[in-house]
C-alpha cells in the first residue's frame, strides 16, 4: 500500500486506515476469502468473553432492506481458548490484531484484561464492546448509561496499559457526550459505533422473529445514521474516532473520514465484497492525488473545516 495511507490511530500504527470489524471473518485466517487482506490495516477479533458462550438460540440472522439483523449472542470459546488457539492464528495475518472483548461484570472485564497481559505482544489494541449487557444493571447495555460506561472504561484503563479503544453503542442520547466520557476515562480512540437495535415480527406466527426479541441492525441501511454519529463524536473529542457502520462503497469510507474519522471499520459489506478494503484504499489514494495531499491524515475532518459550532455550514 502507498505510504500516503499509513497512519497512527489510538496507539497503533496502521498501514492503511481500513480495519476489518469484529464478527466478520473467522478467527482462522486460512478461512478468509482469497485476496481479502489487500488494503486491510488491522483485523478485529470476534467478540470474546471470559467464559465460553454458545450464543443465542433460534434464528440468528435475518436480511432486511439493505441490511441484516443479527442475534448471534457472542458465541465464543472464552479467553483461555482465544489466547491459546485463536490469537496466534490472527497474529499470522501480519497486521495489528484488535482484540474485541465483551463482559457482563467488571470482574469479568478485569479478568479478561489480566489474562491478555500474558500475550501482550500479540495484542495490537483492546477494543471494548460496551453494547453487551451489564448484569448489575439488569442487563442494560454498559454503553447507554454514563456511570456504567465510566466505571468500565476506568477499570480497563487501570488494568490494561496497552492501546485501549471503546466501541460505543449507538443507543445513546448523545454520541458526543459518551465519546467525551470515554476519552476522560482513558480511551485512546472511540469506535463509532456498533449495530443499531431493531427487531422483526413473524407475521404468520404472530411473535418476534428472534428469541431475544431485539437484534442488531447493520449494513448499508444504517450508513447515514452512523455517519451522523461519527460527526457528533468527532466534534466532541480530541482522541481519534473510528467510523463504523454501514460502509458498503469506497465513497462511504471517504465520507466517514471527511466527517472526522481517522480510520474506518468495515463489516457487513465484506459478506458480499471481500475486496472492499482494497477498493477503499484506491479511492482514498485517488482522492489524495486529486487534492494534491500527501497523507490520509490530511483528509480527516475536512468536511468540518468551515462548519460552525452547531454543525451548520457558515456561508
Amino acid at each position: 500500500m502507498e505510504s500516503s495511507l499509513r497512519t497512527n490511530v489510538g496507539g497503533v500504527n496502521l498501514e492503511t486506515p481500513v480495519i476489518v470489524a469484529s464478527g466478520v471473518w473467522p478467527m482462522d485466517p486460512r478461512l478468509w476469502p482469497a485476496g481479502s487482506m489487500e488494503g486491510v490495516g488491522a483485523v478485529c477479533s470476534k467478540g470474546m468473553t471470559f467464559e465460553p458462550r454458545e450464543g443465542n438460540r433460534g434464528f440468528r440472522i435475518m436480511e432486511t432492506y439493505a441490511g441484516i439483523l443479527n442475534s448471534i449472542g457472542l458465541q465464543n470459546y472464552g479467553v483461555e481458548h482465544f489466547i491459546a488457539k485463536e490469537l496466534p492464528l490472527l497474529d499470522n495475518s501480519c497486521r495489528p490484531v484488535i482484540v474485541n472483548i465483551a463482559f457482563e461484570t467488571l470482574e469479568d472485564l478485569r479478568r479478561i484484561l489480566e489474562r491478555l497481559k500474558v500475550c501482550r505482544s500479540m495484542v495490537g489494541v483492546v477494543e471494548m464492546n460496551v453494547s453487551c449487557p451489564n448484569v448489575s444493571r439488569g442487563g442494560l447495555s454498559w454503553g447507554v448509561h454514563t456511570e456504567s460506561l465510566g466505571n468500565a472504561v476506568s477499570m480497563a484503563r487501570q488494568v490494561w496499559e496497552g492501546p485501549l479503544w471503546v466501541k460505543l453503542s449507538p443507543q445513546v442520547p448523545s454520541m458526543g457526550e459518551f465519546a467525551r466520557l470515554s476519552q476522560e476515562c482513558g480511551a485512546q480512540a472511540v469506535v463509532v459505533g456498533n449495530t443499531w437495535l431493531g427487531m422483526a415480527i413473524d407475521n404468520d406466527l404472530e411473535r418476534p422473529f428472534f428469541e431475544n426479541v431485539f437484534a442488531g441492525l447493520s449494513g448499508p441501511a444504517i450508513f447515514p445514521l452512523a455517519l451522523r454519529a461519527v460527526w457528533e463524536a468527532a466534534g466532541a473529542v480530541n482522541i481519534p474516532v473510528i467510523g463504523c457502520g454501514g460502509i458498503a462503497r469506497p465513497g462511504d469510507a471517504l465520507s466517514m473520514i471527511l466527517a472526522g474519522a481517522s480510520a474506518v471499520e468495515v463489516g457487513t459489506a465484506l459478506f458480499i465484497d471481500s475486496g472492499l478494503p482494497a477498493s477503499i484504499c484506491r479511492e482514498l489514494e485517488a482522492n489524495l492525488t486529486k487534492k494534491g495531499l500527501a497523507s490520509v491524515r490530511e483528509l480527516v475532518g475536512r468536511a468540518r473545516n468551515d462548519q460552525g459550532e452547531n454543525g451548520e455550514k457558515s456561508r
Partner: peptide, 26 residues
C-alpha cells in the same frame, strides 16, 4: 441454514451438535 458470510465468521448459521457448536457454512 440462513447464513451471511459463508466463511465461518459471522456465526449466523451455527448449530449445536454432539461435538459442540458447528458452522453449517464451513
Amino acid at each position: 441454514k440462513r447464513m451471511a458470510c459463508g466463511t465461518g465468521g459471522c456465526l449466523g448459521c451455527s448449530i449445536r451438535t454432539g461435538s459442540g457448536m458447528k458452522r453449517v457454512c464451513v
